[in-house]
Design a protein around this nucleic acid. Structure first.
Lengths: 213, 213
DNA sequence: TAGATTGTTAATCGATTAACAATC
DNA sequence: TAGATTGTTAATCGATTAACAATC
């Protein structure tokens, strides 16, 4: 066991990637892997991997390396992928429906239990395998089902308002796709802002500089 | 003018965010802003902002601050948002269609000129405002229209193969949504991997730790 | 001129890399 | 035991912050 100096911030964002690669290796039937082999695969340094992993405990074995399947489960546990937190999507436009259909919530510690939209036309139709409900039903639904995580696929203008309402309904974590930097003043609330537009602009910037260096 | 020590890597990823906030301020009719005011708005330090911006030139004025609209254009130019690079989407499933309909390519230096899918059932139908074509037409289409940027919304298994094919057709930049870490060995190719699953797991991790610290 | 705020250098902090003793 | 590879400390590198002279 480490005395847990804590993993670096960049390290935290590497954890899901470790998890993904280890899952792949496990699926391929690989039993053990050294930090060196994994570093080659993932384009990191072996040192970095050992530092990252050792923050959570000594998962490896000298002279052997890491047991793939064991490490996979450990990281899954660290990430909370073994949980099953009730999750709702707010906004059933193109993006909300794509996320409902496209994201595998279950393997990431989440269970999709509801999709909501303000447009009555959409209510009753399906987003993935989930029936779309009207946002008026949020209060009743949340009191009954106690979801913890909300995915926000709504226009910028409504985001803060809806988020505040959901906080008051007990939601604890927000995956925010609106073009708005959500930051919630309550402590004990987690927010992950996804700005696809920013990501595209980063690519544009890189394209702009190709062949320059 | 700076002698361009170069912006930090995290700094590069902050540029689109600066652009977004300045665009908002401009829309609100704000004329000037100091690094201090902007830092409060964006949750950064004033020093950081001055460092980031000064890498590209002295856009500010002592005693005054920055001209919002001028700085907005400068950053847009740096990012390449003023260009109009031909862009195609490969894969017209839920995600591909959501991106076609949801992302404003034009304001980010990209012009969506084609959407392709391997499923003939989809061909001829619309993704956003763009007709879906069969991937068999890629060669002819690319030779005629010379797209530079490809958005990959295809299954993991096909990603590397399709990417290689597109590289040989002259594509220069890849916005990759497949569950696969695309890395292209050719130099002079830019890749931006978007792993929505990793993003969700990061949120799960944060949710797991709420109230812990 | 006085006040404000940048541009820029120096100091600090944090993350990554290198090195190696511990140990399987 | 010999070889391999971790866990962990120390050295390096890079990014952020602080400070302040330049200047509008």
């Amino acid at each position: 066991m480490s005395k847990s100096k804590g993993i670096s911030n960049p390290g935290i964002r590497r954890l899901p990637r470790y998890y993904r690669f280890l899952g792949e290796l496990k699926k391929q039937g690989v039993e053990r892997i050294s930090s060196r082999e994994l570093s080659a695969l993932m384009n990191l340094t072996a040192s970095q991997i050992r530092q990252d992993l050792n923050c959570f405990g000594g998962f490896g074995q000298q002279g052997y390396g890491y047991n793939v399947s064991g490490l996979y489960s450990e990281i899954g546990r660290i990430l909370g992928a073994d949980k099953s937190r009730g999750t709702i999507i707010i906004g059933a436009g193109n993006l909300g429906r794509a996320i409902a259909a496209h994201i595998n919530f279950d393997t990431r510690g989440c269970r999709l239990i509801g999709v909501f939209d303000a447009d009555r036309q959409l209510c009753g139709t399906l987003a993935g395998k989930t029936v779309i409900r009207h946002t008026d039903e949020l209060e009743v639904f949340c009191n009954e089902n106690k979801p913890e995580i909300a995915v926000l696929c709504i226009p910028k203008a409504n985001t803060q308002e809806i988020a505040d309402r959901l906080v008051s309904l007990g939601l604890k974590a927000f995956w925010n796709f609106s073009h708005y930097d959500l930051s919630i003043d309550h402590e004990d609330i987690a927010v992950e802002n996804v700005h696809l537009g920013d990501s595209l602009l980063t690519l544009t910037y890189a394209a702009e500089r190709l062949g320059t260096e």
